[in-house]
Design a protein around this nucleic acid. Sequence first.
DNA 1: TGTACATCAGTGAACGCGCGTTCACTGATGTAC
DNA 2: TGTACATCAGTGAACGCGCGTTCACTGATGTAC
Lengths: 225, 225
Amino acid sequence: VSPPIPSRQEPRRLRTRAALLRAGADLLAERSIEAIPVNDIVDRAGVAKGSFFNHFADKDDFAAAIAADIRRAIEGRVGVANEGVGDPAMRVGRGVCAYVDFALSQPREARIMLRASAGTACADHPLNSGLRADLAAGCASDRFHIGGVEAGVLYVIGICQMLLAGLMERRSDRAGAVALAREIVALLLTGLGVPAGEAADTAREATRVLDDQTAGRGVESPASF
Amino acid sequence: VSPPIPSRQEPRRLRTRAALLRAGADLLAERSIEAIPVNDIVDRAGVAKGSFFNHFADKDDFAAAIAADIRRAIEGRVGVANEGVGDPAMRVGRGVCAYVDFALSQPREARIMLRASAGTACADHPLNSGLRADLAAGCASDRFHIGGVEAGVLYVIGICQMLLAGLMERRSDRAGAVALAREIVALLLTGLGVPAGEAADTAREATRVLDDQTAGRGVESPASF
DNA sequence: TGTACATCAGTGAACGCGCGTTCACTGATGTAC
DNA sequence: TGTACATCAGTGAACGCGCGTTCACTGATGTAC
Protein backbone atom coordinates (compact mmCIF):
# COMPACT_ATOMS: atom_id res chain seq x y z
CA VAL A 1 0.00 0.00 0.00
CA SER A 2 2.48 2.57 1.10
CA PRO A 3 5.36 2.11 -1.36
CA PRO A 4 4.07 3.73 -4.54
CA ILE A 5 3.33 7.13 -3.02
CA PRO A 6 2.77 9.32 -6.05
CA SER A 7 5.81 11.51 -6.49
CA ARG A 8 5.48 15.24 -6.44
CA GLN A 9 6.05 15.20 -10.19
CA GLU A 10 3.06 13.08 -11.02
CA PRO A 11 0.00 14.80 -12.35
CA ARG A 12 -1.96 16.58 -9.69
CA ARG A 13 -5.06 14.59 -10.59
CA LEU A 14 -3.49 11.28 -9.63
CA ARG A 15 -2.17 12.62 -6.37
CA THR A 16 -5.60 13.88 -5.35
CA ARG A 17 -7.26 10.64 -6.37
CA ALA A 18 -4.70 8.58 -4.47
CA ALA A 19 -5.11 10.74 -1.36
CA LEU A 20 -8.87 10.21 -1.48
CA LEU A 21 -8.56 6.47 -1.97
CA ARG A 22 -6.05 6.16 0.84
CA ALA A 23 -8.24 8.17 3.21
CA GLY A 24 -11.22 6.09 2.19
CA ALA A 25 -9.35 2.87 2.86
CA ASP A 26 -8.42 4.10 6.32
CA LEU A 27 -12.02 4.89 7.15
CA LEU A 28 -13.61 1.88 5.45
CA ALA A 29 -11.45 -0.42 7.55
CA GLU A 30 -13.47 0.69 10.57
CA ARG A 31 -17.03 1.32 9.35
CA SER A 32 -19.29 0.90 6.37
CA ILE A 33 -19.51 3.50 3.62
CA GLU A 34 -22.97 4.61 4.75
CA ALA A 35 -21.52 5.56 8.11
CA ILE A 36 -18.71 7.65 6.63
CA PRO A 37 -19.51 11.29 5.75
CA VAL A 38 -17.80 12.71 2.68
CA ASN A 39 -16.52 15.43 4.99
CA ASP A 40 -14.48 12.86 6.93
CA ILE A 41 -12.98 11.51 3.72
CA VAL A 42 -11.91 14.86 2.30
CA ASP A 43 -10.68 16.12 5.67
CA ARG A 44 -8.43 13.10 6.06
CA ALA A 45 -7.29 13.34 2.45
CA GLY A 46 -6.56 17.04 2.83
CA VAL A 47 -8.53 18.09 -0.25
CA ALA A 48 -11.60 20.21 -0.78
CA LYS A 49 -15.02 18.63 -0.68
CA GLY A 50 -15.68 19.48 -4.31
CA SER A 51 -12.68 17.47 -5.42
CA PHE A 52 -14.34 14.32 -4.23
CA PHE A 53 -17.01 14.73 -6.88
CA ASN A 54 -14.45 15.54 -9.54
CA HIS A 55 -13.24 11.97 -9.16
CA PHE A 56 -16.23 9.92 -8.11
CA ALA A 57 -19.88 10.08 -9.03
CA ASP A 58 -20.98 9.46 -5.45
CA LYS A 59 -20.02 7.62 -2.28
CA ASP A 60 -21.00 4.23 -3.64
CA ASP A 61 -18.86 4.75 -6.72
CA PHE A 62 -16.00 5.63 -4.40
CA ALA A 63 -16.44 2.49 -2.29
CA ALA A 64 -16.65 0.39 -5.42
CA ALA A 65 -13.37 1.82 -6.72
CA ILE A 66 -11.63 0.92 -3.48
CA ALA A 67 -13.10 -2.58 -3.50
CA ALA A 68 -12.04 -3.08 -7.11
CA ASP A 69 -8.46 -2.08 -6.31
CA ILE A 70 -8.34 -4.54 -3.44
CA ARG A 71 -9.83 -7.34 -5.49
CA ARG A 72 -7.29 -6.74 -8.23
CA ALA A 73 -4.45 -6.86 -5.73
CA ILE A 74 -5.53 -10.11 -4.10
CA GLU A 75 -6.22 -11.80 -7.43
CA GLY A 76 -2.72 -10.95 -8.53
CA ARG A 77 -1.26 -12.40 -5.36
CA VAL A 78 -3.11 -15.68 -5.69
CA GLY A 79 -2.18 -16.00 -9.33
CA VAL A 80 1.51 -15.47 -8.63
CA ALA A 81 1.50 -17.80 -5.65
CA ASN A 82 0.27 -20.69 -7.76
CA GLU A 83 2.37 -20.12 -10.87
CA GLY A 84 3.75 -23.45 -11.97
CA VAL A 85 2.26 -25.38 -9.05
CA GLY A 86 0.57 -28.60 -10.14
CA ASP A 87 -0.59 -30.52 -7.08
CA PRO A 88 -4.17 -29.45 -6.25
CA ALA A 89 -3.56 -29.76 -2.50
CA MET A 90 -0.54 -27.51 -2.72
CA ARG A 91 -2.43 -25.09 -4.96
CA VAL A 92 -5.23 -24.77 -2.41
CA GLY A 93 -2.74 -24.39 0.42
CA ARG A 94 -0.74 -21.75 -1.38
CA GLY A 95 -3.88 -19.90 -2.40
CA VAL A 96 -4.94 -19.65 1.22
CA CYS A 97 -1.43 -18.52 2.13
CA ALA A 98 -1.61 -15.79 -0.48
CA TYR A 99 -4.64 -14.43 1.34
CA VAL A 100 -2.85 -14.68 4.66
CA ASP A 101 0.18 -12.89 3.28
CA PHE A 102 -2.08 -10.15 1.98
CA ALA A 103 -3.78 -9.83 5.35
CA LEU A 104 -0.43 -9.57 7.14
CA SER A 105 1.09 -7.04 4.78
CA GLN A 106 -2.03 -4.96 4.14
CA PRO A 107 -4.30 -5.39 7.13
CA ARG A 108 -6.32 -2.31 6.30
CA GLU A 109 -7.28 -3.63 2.86
CA ALA A 110 -7.85 -7.11 4.26
CA ARG A 111 -10.29 -5.70 6.77
CA ILE A 112 -12.23 -3.95 4.03
CA MET A 113 -12.30 -7.10 1.92
CA LEU A 114 -13.56 -9.16 4.84
CA ARG A 115 -16.22 -6.64 5.68
CA ALA A 116 -17.40 -6.52 2.10
CA SER A 117 -17.42 -10.20 1.25
CA ALA A 118 -18.39 -11.45 4.68
CA GLY A 119 -21.67 -13.23 4.78
CA THR A 120 -21.64 -13.90 1.09
CA ALA A 121 -20.76 -17.11 -0.65
CA CYS A 122 -19.93 -15.07 -3.78
CA ALA A 123 -20.10 -18.21 -5.91
CA ASP A 124 -19.49 -16.26 -9.10
CA HIS A 125 -16.32 -14.61 -7.86
CA PRO A 126 -13.48 -15.09 -10.38
CA LEU A 127 -11.24 -16.44 -7.63
CA ASN A 128 -13.73 -19.14 -6.85
CA SER A 129 -13.71 -20.47 -10.36
CA GLY A 130 -10.00 -21.12 -9.91
CA LEU A 131 -10.68 -22.88 -6.65
CA ARG A 132 -13.45 -24.87 -8.29
CA ALA A 133 -11.03 -26.05 -10.96
CA ASP A 134 -8.45 -27.06 -8.36
CA LEU A 135 -11.03 -29.05 -6.43
CA ALA A 136 -12.26 -30.78 -9.57
CA ALA A 137 -8.71 -31.65 -10.56
CA GLY A 138 -8.03 -32.99 -7.08
CA CYS A 139 -11.11 -35.20 -7.24
CA ALA A 140 -10.14 -36.48 -10.69
CA SER A 141 -6.63 -37.38 -9.53
CA ASP A 142 -7.94 -38.99 -6.32
CA ARG A 143 -6.05 -36.46 -4.24
CA PHE A 144 -9.32 -35.17 -2.79
CA HIS A 145 -12.33 -37.17 -1.69
CA ILE A 146 -15.28 -34.85 -1.38
CA GLY A 147 -18.98 -35.23 -2.08
CA GLY A 148 -19.50 -32.33 -4.44
CA VAL A 149 -17.31 -29.54 -5.73
CA GLU A 150 -19.80 -26.86 -4.74
CA ALA A 151 -19.74 -28.00 -1.13
CA GLY A 152 -15.95 -28.01 -1.33
CA VAL A 153 -15.87 -24.42 -2.56
CA LEU A 154 -18.01 -23.22 0.32
CA TYR A 155 -15.91 -25.24 2.72
CA VAL A 156 -12.63 -23.73 1.58
CA ILE A 157 -13.70 -20.11 1.33
CA GLY A 158 -15.45 -20.34 4.69
CA ILE A 159 -12.29 -21.56 6.35
CA CYS A 160 -10.19 -18.99 4.52
CA GLN A 161 -12.43 -16.08 5.48
CA MET A 162 -12.56 -17.09 9.12
CA LEU A 163 -8.81 -17.59 9.20
CA LEU A 164 -8.40 -14.01 8.00
CA ALA A 165 -10.94 -12.76 10.53
CA GLY A 166 -9.07 -14.59 13.26
CA LEU A 167 -5.78 -13.06 12.17
CA MET A 168 -7.29 -9.58 12.16
CA GLU A 169 -8.74 -9.93 15.64
CA ARG A 170 -5.90 -11.50 17.52
CA ARG A 171 -3.14 -9.12 16.73
CA SER A 172 -0.48 -11.73 17.20
CA ASP A 173 3.00 -11.53 15.79
CA ARG A 174 3.87 -12.90 12.38
CA ALA A 175 5.13 -16.20 13.77
CA GLY A 176 1.88 -16.79 15.63
CA ALA A 177 -0.13 -15.93 12.55
CA VAL A 178 1.86 -18.33 10.41
CA ALA A 179 1.43 -21.08 12.99
CA LEU A 180 -2.32 -20.55 13.03
CA ALA A 181 -2.45 -20.59 9.24
CA ARG A 182 -0.45 -23.80 9.18
CA GLU A 183 -2.77 -25.56 11.61
CA ILE A 184 -5.86 -24.47 9.74
CA VAL A 185 -4.55 -25.38 6.30
CA ALA A 186 -3.76 -28.83 7.69
CA LEU A 187 -7.34 -29.19 8.96
CA LEU A 188 -8.65 -27.94 5.63
CA LEU A 189 -6.66 -30.42 3.53
CA THR A 190 -7.49 -33.29 5.87
CA GLY A 191 -11.16 -32.48 5.40
CA LEU A 192 -10.72 -32.66 1.64
CA GLY A 193 -9.48 -36.23 2.03
CA VAL A 194 -5.71 -35.80 2.10
CA PRO A 195 -4.23 -38.22 4.68
CA ALA A 196 -3.47 -36.38 7.90
CA GLY A 197 0.31 -36.74 7.64
CA GLU A 198 0.47 -35.51 4.07
CA ALA A 199 -1.92 -32.70 4.88
CA ALA A 200 0.37 -31.49 7.66
CA ASP A 201 3.40 -31.74 5.37
CA THR A 202 1.69 -29.82 2.59
CA ALA A 203 0.52 -27.18 5.06
CA ARG A 204 4.04 -26.77 6.38
CA GLU A 205 5.43 -26.48 2.88
CA ALA A 206 2.75 -24.04 1.70
CA THR A 207 3.07 -21.74 4.71
CA ARG A 208 6.84 -21.55 4.30
CA VAL A 209 6.43 -18.64 1.89
CA LEU A 210 5.04 -16.71 4.85
CA ASP A 211 8.12 -17.15 6.98
CA ASP A 212 10.37 -14.62 5.31
CA GLN A 213 9.53 -10.96 5.36
CA THR A 214 9.87 -10.61 1.61
CA ALA A 215 6.79 -12.72 0.95
CA GLY A 216 4.58 -11.27 -1.71
CA ARG A 217 7.35 -9.32 -3.36
CA GLY A 218 7.28 -9.04 -7.08
CA VAL A 219 3.54 -8.47 -7.09
CA GLU A 220 2.72 -4.97 -8.10
CA SER A 221 -0.02 -3.46 -6.01
CA PRO A 222 -2.43 -1.22 -7.88
CA ALA A 223 -1.16 2.29 -8.34
CA SER A 224 -3.62 3.67 -5.83
CA PHE A 225 -2.07 1.87 -2.89
CA VAL B 1 -41.11 -15.67 13.73
CA SER B 2 -44.69 -15.47 12.66
CA PRO B 3 -46.48 -17.74 15.14
CA PRO B 4 -46.60 -15.66 18.29
CA ILE B 5 -48.34 -12.66 16.75
CA PRO B 6 -49.39 -10.65 19.80
CA SER B 7 -53.11 -11.08 20.26
CA ARG B 8 -55.36 -8.08 20.19
CA GLN B 9 -55.76 -8.48 23.94
CA GLU B 10 -52.11 -8.06 24.78
CA PRO B 11 -51.02 -4.74 26.10
CA ARG B 12 -50.73 -2.12 23.44
CA ARG B 13 -47.15 -1.49 24.40
CA LEU B 14 -46.05 -5.00 23.48
CA ARG B 15 -47.87 -4.91 20.19
CA THR B 16 -46.19 -1.68 19.17
CA ARG B 17 -42.80 -2.94 20.24
CA ALA B 18 -43.28 -6.20 18.36
CA ALA B 19 -44.40 -4.36 15.23
CA LEU B 20 -41.28 -2.22 15.36
CA LEU B 21 -38.99 -5.18 15.89
CA ARG B 22 -40.61 -7.12 13.10
CA ALA B 23 -40.33 -4.19 10.70
CA GLY B 24 -36.72 -3.70 11.73
CA ALA B 25 -35.94 -7.35 11.10
CA ASP B 26 -37.44 -7.09 7.61
CA LEU B 27 -35.31 -4.09 6.79
CA LEU B 28 -32.11 -5.23 8.50
CA ALA B 29 -32.15 -8.39 6.42
CA GLU B 30 -31.38 -6.22 3.40
CA ARG B 31 -29.19 -3.37 4.61
CA SER B 32 -27.24 -2.14 7.61
CA ILE B 33 -28.85 -0.06 10.33
CA GLU B 34 -27.02 3.08 9.18
CA ALA B 35 -28.72 2.78 5.81
CA ILE B 36 -32.23 2.45 7.26
CA PRO B 37 -34.06 5.68 8.13
CA VAL B 38 -36.32 5.60 11.17
CA ASN B 39 -39.08 6.72 8.82
CA ASP B 40 -38.84 3.44 6.93
CA ILE B 41 -39.08 1.46 10.14
CA VAL B 42 -42.14 3.22 11.52
CA ASP B 43 -43.86 3.29 8.13
CA ARG B 44 -43.48 -0.44 7.80
CA ALA B 45 -44.53 -1.02 11.39
CA GLY B 46 -47.54 1.22 10.96
CA VAL B 47 -46.83 3.34 14.00
CA ALA B 48 -45.97 6.99 14.51
CA LYS B 49 -42.41 8.13 14.43
CA GLY B 50 -42.54 9.24 18.06
CA SER B 51 -43.40 5.73 19.20
CA PHE B 52 -40.03 4.52 18.06
CA PHE B 53 -38.36 6.66 20.70
CA ASN B 54 -40.82 5.56 23.36
CA HIS B 55 -39.33 2.10 23.02
CA PHE B 56 -35.71 2.58 22.00
CA ALA B 57 -33.13 5.18 22.92
CA ASP B 58 -31.87 5.42 19.35
CA LYS B 59 -31.30 3.39 16.20
CA ASP B 60 -28.30 1.56 17.60
CA ASP B 61 -30.24 0.52 20.67
CA PHE B 62 -32.94 -0.78 18.33
CA ALA B 63 -30.50 -2.81 16.25
CA ALA B 64 -28.94 -4.20 19.42
CA ALA B 65 -32.34 -5.33 20.69
CA ILE B 66 -33.00 -7.20 17.46
CA ALA B 67 -29.56 -8.80 17.50
CA ALA B 68 -30.04 -9.85 21.13
CA ASP B 69 -33.35 -11.52 20.30
CA ILE B 70 -31.76 -13.44 17.47
CA ARG B 71 -28.80 -14.49 19.54
CA ARG B 72 -31.11 -15.74 22.28
CA ALA B 73 -33.10 -17.74 19.76
CA ILE B 74 -30.12 -19.45 18.19
CA GLU B 75 -28.49 -20.20 21.51
CA GLY B 76 -31.67 -21.91 22.62
CA ARG B 77 -31.76 -23.99 19.45
CA VAL B 78 -28.18 -25.19 19.81
CA GLY B 79 -28.68 -26.02 23.47
CA VAL B 80 -31.78 -28.10 22.78
CA ALA B 81 -30.19 -29.86 19.80
CA ASN B 82 -27.36 -31.17 21.93
CA GLU B 83 -29.29 -32.11 25.05
CA GLY B 84 -28.10 -35.50 26.17
CA VAL B 85 -25.68 -35.96 23.27
CA GLY B 86 -22.29 -37.20 24.38
CA ASP B 87 -20.12 -37.89 21.33
CA PRO B 88 -18.18 -34.72 20.48
CA ALA B 89 -18.42 -35.38 16.75
CA MET B 90 -22.17 -35.72 16.96
CA ARG B 91 -22.40 -32.63 19.16
CA VAL B 92 -20.51 -30.55 16.60
CA GLY B 93 -22.62 -31.97 13.78
CA ARG B 94 -25.88 -31.32 15.57
CA GLY B 95 -24.78 -27.84 16.55
CA VAL B 96 -24.15 -26.97 12.91
CA CYS B 97 -27.51 -28.49 12.01
CA ALA B 98 -29.22 -26.31 14.60
CA TYR B 99 -27.86 -23.30 12.76
CA VAL B 100 -29.02 -24.71 9.44
CA ASP B 101 -32.49 -25.39 10.83
CA PHE B 102 -32.63 -21.85 12.10
CA ALA B 103 -31.57 -20.50 8.71
CA LEU B 104 -34.23 -22.54 6.94
CA SER B 105 -37.07 -21.67 9.28
CA GLN B 106 -36.14 -18.02 9.89
CA PRO B 107 -34.13 -16.86 6.89
CA ARG B 108 -34.70 -13.23 7.69
CA GLU B 109 -33.13 -13.53 11.14
CA ALA B 110 -30.37 -15.74 9.77
CA ARG B 111 -29.47 -13.06 7.25
CA ILE B 112 -29.23 -10.45 9.98
CA MET B 113 -27.08 -12.72 12.10
CA LEU B 114 -24.75 -13.42 9.19
CA ARG B 115 -24.45 -9.77 8.33
CA ALA B 116 -23.68 -8.87 11.92
CA SER B 117 -21.20 -11.59 12.78
CA ALA B 118 -19.63 -11.87 9.36
CA GLY B 119 -16.01 -11.00 9.26
CA THR B 120 -15.60 -11.51 12.97
CA ALA B 121 -14.14 -14.48 14.71
CA CYS B 122 -16.08 -13.47 17.84
CA ALA B 123 -13.88 -15.68 20.00
CA ASP B 124 -15.63 -14.63 23.17
CA HIS B 125 -19.09 -15.53 21.93
CA PRO B 126 -20.89 -17.77 24.46
CA LEU B 127 -21.64 -20.29 21.74
CA ASN B 128 -17.97 -20.64 20.97
CA SER B 129 -17.11 -21.62 24.50
CA GLY B 130 -19.45 -24.59 24.08
CA LEU B 131 -17.73 -25.48 20.82
CA ARG B 132 -14.35 -25.08 22.46
CA ALA B 133 -15.38 -27.56 25.15
CA ASP B 134 -16.60 -30.06 22.56
CA LEU B 135 -13.35 -29.82 20.64
CA ALA B 136 -11.28 -30.25 23.79
CA ALA B 137 -13.36 -33.26 24.78
CA GLY B 138 -12.95 -34.74 21.32
CA CYS B 139 -9.19 -34.34 21.51
CA ALA B 140 -9.06 -35.90 24.96
CA SER B 141 -11.05 -38.92 23.85
CA ASP B 142 -8.99 -39.28 20.66
CA ARG B 143 -12.08 -38.68 18.55
CA PHE B 144 -10.51 -35.55 17.07
CA HIS B 145 -6.93 -35.01 15.98
CA ILE B 146 -6.30 -31.33 15.64
CA GLY B 147 -3.31 -29.14 16.31
CA GLY B 148 -4.87 -26.63 18.66
CA VAL B 149 -8.36 -25.98 19.92
CA GLU B 150 -8.29 -22.32 18.89
CA ALA B 151 -7.58 -23.25 15.29
CA GLY B 152 -10.39 -25.79 15.51
CA VAL B 153 -12.86 -23.17 16.71
CA LEU B 154 -12.05 -20.86 13.81
CA TYR B 155 -12.26 -23.80 11.43
CA VAL B 156 -15.71 -24.87 12.58
CA ILE B 157 -17.34 -21.45 12.78
CA GLY B 158 -15.88 -20.48 9.42
CA ILE B 159 -17.41 -23.51 7.78
CA CYS B 160 -20.68 -22.99 9.60
CA GLN B 161 -20.97 -19.35 8.60
CA MET B 162 -20.18 -20.04 4.97
CA LEU B 163 -22.64 -22.92 4.91
CA LEU B 164 -25.34 -20.53 6.08
CA ALA B 165 -24.28 -17.92 3.54
CA GLY B 166 -24.45 -20.56 0.83
CA LEU B 167 -27.92 -21.60 1.90
CA MET B 168 -29.10 -18.00 1.88
CA GLU B 169 -27.78 -17.32 -1.59
CA ARG B 170 -28.86 -20.40 -3.45
CA ARG B 171 -32.51 -20.45 -2.66
CA SER B 172 -32.75 -24.18 -3.10
CA ASP B 173 -35.49 -26.36 -1.66
CA ARG B 174 -35.19 -27.92 1.75
CA ALA B 175 -33.92 -31.22 0.37
CA GLY B 176 -31.10 -29.50 -1.48
CA ALA B 177 -30.19 -27.50 1.58
CA VAL B 178 -30.06 -30.60 3.75
CA ALA B 179 -27.91 -32.40 1.19
CA LEU B 180 -25.45 -29.50 1.14
CA ALA B 181 -25.34 -29.39 4.92
CA ARG B 182 -24.69 -33.13 5.03
CA GLU B 183 -21.77 -32.89 2.60
CA ILE B 184 -20.22 -30.00 4.45
CA VAL B 185 -20.59 -31.54 7.90
CA ALA B 186 -18.87 -34.64 6.53
CA LEU B 187 -15.95 -32.53 5.27
CA LEU B 188 -15.83 -30.69 8.58
CA LEU B 189 -15.66 -33.83 10.71
CA THR B 190 -13.13 -35.43 8.39
CA GLY B 191 -10.93 -32.38 8.85
CA LEU B 192 -11.17 -32.78 12.62
CA GLY B 193 -9.69 -36.25 12.26
CA VAL B 194 -12.77 -38.46 12.19
CA PRO B 195 -12.23 -41.26 9.65
CA ALA B 196 -14.03 -40.46 6.39
CA GLY B 197 -16.59 -43.23 6.67
CA GLU B 198 -17.54 -42.41 10.23
CA ALA B 199 -17.66 -38.72 9.40
CA ALA B 200 -20.16 -39.39 6.61
CA ASP B 201 -22.25 -41.57 8.91
CA THR B 202 -22.27 -38.97 11.66
CA ALA B 203 -23.16 -36.24 9.18
CA ARG B 204 -26.05 -38.33 7.86
CA GLU B 205 -27.29 -39.01 11.36
CA ALA B 206 -26.93 -35.39 12.50
CA THR B 207 -28.71 -33.93 9.49
CA ARG B 208 -31.64 -36.30 9.90
CA VAL B 209 -33.29 -33.84 12.28
CA LEU B 210 -33.52 -31.48 9.31
CA ASP B 211 -35.50 -33.89 7.19
CA ASP B 212 -38.89 -33.50 8.85
CA GLN B 213 -40.72 -30.21 8.74
CA THR B 214 -41.22 -30.15 12.49
CA ALA B 215 -37.54 -29.68 13.15
CA GLY B 216 -36.85 -27.09 15.77
CA ARG B 217 -40.23 -27.49 17.43
CA GLY B 218 -40.32 -27.23 21.17
CA VAL B 219 -37.94 -24.31 21.11
CA GLU B 220 -39.66 -21.14 22.12
CA SER B 221 -38.72 -18.20 19.98
CA PRO B 222 -38.42 -14.91 21.80
CA ALA B 223 -41.73 -13.14 22.23
CA SER B 224 -40.84 -10.53 19.68
CA PHE B 225 -40.73 -12.96 16.77
C1' DT C 1 -72.60 -2.52 36.26
C1' DG C 2 -71.70 2.46 35.51
C1' DT C 3 -69.10 6.66 35.93
C1' DA C 4 -65.07 9.63 36.84
C1' DC C 5 -60.52 9.76 36.83
C1' DA C 6 -55.38 8.69 36.48
C1' DT C 7 -52.00 6.72 33.86
C1' DC C 8 -49.33 6.16 30.09
C1' DA C 9 -48.46 4.85 25.31
C1' DG C 10 -49.42 6.83 20.77
C1' DT C 11 -49.29 10.73 17.65
C1' DG C 12 -47.38 13.73 14.18
C1' DA C 13 -46.04 18.44 13.45
C1' DA C 14 -41.99 20.96 14.21
C1' DC C 15 -37.04 21.68 14.64
C1' DG C 16 -32.54 22.20 13.34
C1' DC C 17 -28.41 19.82 12.25
C1' DG C 18 -25.57 17.59 9.05
C1' DC C 19 -25.43 15.51 5.06
C1' DG C 20 -24.55 14.89 -0.18
C1' DT C 21 -24.15 17.58 -3.99
C1' DT C 22 -23.49 21.84 -6.95
C1' DC C 23 -21.15 25.57 -9.19
C1' DA C 24 -18.91 29.91 -10.13
C1' DC C 25 -14.46 31.04 -9.43
C1' DT C 26 -9.24 30.34 -8.75
C1' DG C 27 -4.96 29.08 -9.90
C1' DA C 28 -1.73 25.50 -11.36
C1' DT C 29 -0.02 23.02 -15.35
C1' DG C 30 1.32 22.45 -19.83
C1' DT C 31 1.43 24.20 -24.72
C1' DA C 32 2.11 27.35 -28.78
C1' DC C 33 4.81 30.53 -30.78
C1' DT D 1 14.26 30.89 -23.13
C1' DG D 2 10.22 33.95 -22.49
C1' DT D 3 5.43 35.22 -22.90
C1' DA D 4 0.44 34.59 -23.72
C1' DC D 5 -2.96 31.59 -23.53
C1' DA D 6 -5.99 27.32 -23.01
C1' DT D 7 -7.13 23.68 -20.26
C1' DC D 8 -8.68 21.56 -16.40
C1' DA D 9 -8.38 20.11 -11.61
C1' DG D 10 -8.99 22.28 -7.08
C1' DT D 11 -11.71 25.17 -4.01
C1' DG D 12 -15.13 26.09 -0.54
C1' DA D 13 -19.30 28.68 0.14
C1' DA D 14 -23.97 27.82 -0.59
C1' DC D 15 -28.09 25.03 -0.99
C1' DG D 16 -31.80 22.39 0.37
C1' DC D 17 -33.22 17.87 1.49
C1' DG D 18 -33.85 14.35 4.76
C1' DC D 19 -32.58 12.79 8.77
C1' DG D 20 -32.86 11.80 14.02
C1' DT D 21 -35.03 13.56 17.77
C1' DT D 22 -38.43 16.30 20.66
C1' DC D 23 -42.69 17.48 22.83
C1' DA D 24 -47.28 19.17 23.68
C1' DC D 25 -51.30 17.00 22.93
C1' DT D 26 -54.67 12.94 22.22
C1' DG D 27 -57.01 9.13 23.39
C1' DA D 28 -56.96 4.33 24.88
C1' DT D 29 -56.62 1.41 28.90
C1' DG D 30 -57.35 0.11 33.39
C1' DT D 31 -58.77 1.41 38.22
C1' DA D 32 -61.54 3.27 42.15
C1' DC D 33 -65.71 3.76 44.00
